[in-house]
């Protein structure tokens, strides 16, 4: 049998999360097809065909797919199910929105946030904010999985000369009742949270949107991405998509600096697999210190500018 990966892209390049999903898919040890749905994607598809490990690139090009909605994609993908034993998506907001809709149309359950592939039908996934790890067996005829990208890595192979076949799907566009109104993207020149080597996260203690410059300055010195706790996002100091935690982004960088963050279980769920954790907090009793490799009890408004100045 074969595996199908549903690509996420920005029209010009595949998202890093899709490459990581490919890394996970290779562990299943069977041929891999990549579906690219979008508009004006021929160049992107040609590029994808050079990625080692992909057997076929399926393309579905339509003006209505420039902003793809799950209502449109799911029925078409569900119709491909007889050809695939596994359909994989990244556990991104796109993948989480789409995978269950495909699964329900196939009449099967989906598995969210797979962190380990034990065999082609046994997996590990975190439950209870990562405070427990479930081992599950999936006996669905077509298994639909979302992959937690912080737990896998992209393949490291060089592009291959033997191109994958590019095959255009000929399908009718399902009617979509959804109309796009607007999109507010948080533009940033900093690295993306889910692929950054270093992340500096600020919590409620940062105190205001303006004060976050303290965090940005340090992040820029370190070439780091910026993250936040829910409290900082709720208070409007920083954009919603930078929330790290059980219900936000799950990250595992080489270095995670938690600044003025108490360390609630919901926050820890999103960062406790980081390689090195540093906590800076003025309360020596803060729970964040119990997971930190290095702790510093200090006022962030003294310690962070001092760090920035010394780097």
């Amino acid at each position: 049998m074969k595996t199908l990966i549903i690509a996420e892209h920005n029209q010009h390049a595949l998202k890093a999360a899709t490459l990581v999903t490919l890394g996970a898919a290779q562990q299943l040890g069977q041929p891999i097809d990549l579906l690219i749905a979008g508009h004006e994607i021929s160049e992107l598809s040609q590029d994808a065909a050079t990625i080692a490990g992909i057997d076929r690139v399926l393309t579905w090009d339509h003006a209505m797919l420039a902003i793809p909605f799950s209502e449109t994609l799911a029925p078409v993908i569900a119709n491909l199910r007889s050809q695939y034993s596994h359909i994989l998506l990244a556990s991104s907001s796109f993948g989480k929105d789409l995978a269950p809709r495909i699964a329900a149309l196939c009449g099967v359950n989906a598995l969210s946030d797979v962190i380990e592939i034990i065999s082609p039908n046994q997996y590990k996934r975190p439950i209870y904010a990562g405070n427990a790890i479930a081992t599950v067996k999936n006996s669905a005829s077509c298994q639909i999985l979302t992959i937690r990208t912080s737990a896998f890595s992209a393949p490291t192979h060089e592009p291959t000369a033997s191109l994958a076949q590019v095959h255009a799907l000929s399908v009718e566009l399902p009617h979509s009742p959804v109309r796009f109104v607007k999109q507010t993207l948080s533009e940033s020149s900093r690295p993306e949270l889910n692929s950054a080597e270093i992340i500096v996260s600020g919590g409620r203690a940062v105190g205001s949107e303006a004060n976050f410059s303290v965090i940005y300055d340090l992040a820029d010195k370190l070439g780091a991405a910026v993250g936040a706790s829910r409290a900082a996002v709720d208070a409007g100091y920083i954009a919603n998509d930078l929330q790290v935690g059980q219900t936000g982004q799950v990250v595992a960088p080489s270095l995670y600096l938690a600044v003025g963050i108490s360390g609630a279980i919901q926050h820890l769920a999103g960062m406790k697999d980081s390689k090195v954790i540093v906590a800076i907090n003025n309360d020596p009793e803060a729970p964040i210190f119990s997971v930190a490799d290095y702790g510093l009890v200090a006022d962030l408004f003294d310690a962070i500018p001092a760090m920035t100045a010394r780097l």
Partner: peptide, 20 residues
């Protein structure tokens, strides 16, 4: 019945580190 729970384990425990 397609998804069966085989077992549940605790995640790797993180040791508290050093205070600087």
């Amino acid at each position: 019945t397609d998804i069966e729970l085989i077992s549940v384990s605790s995640p790797a425990h993180r040791q508290a580190g050093i205070m600087l």
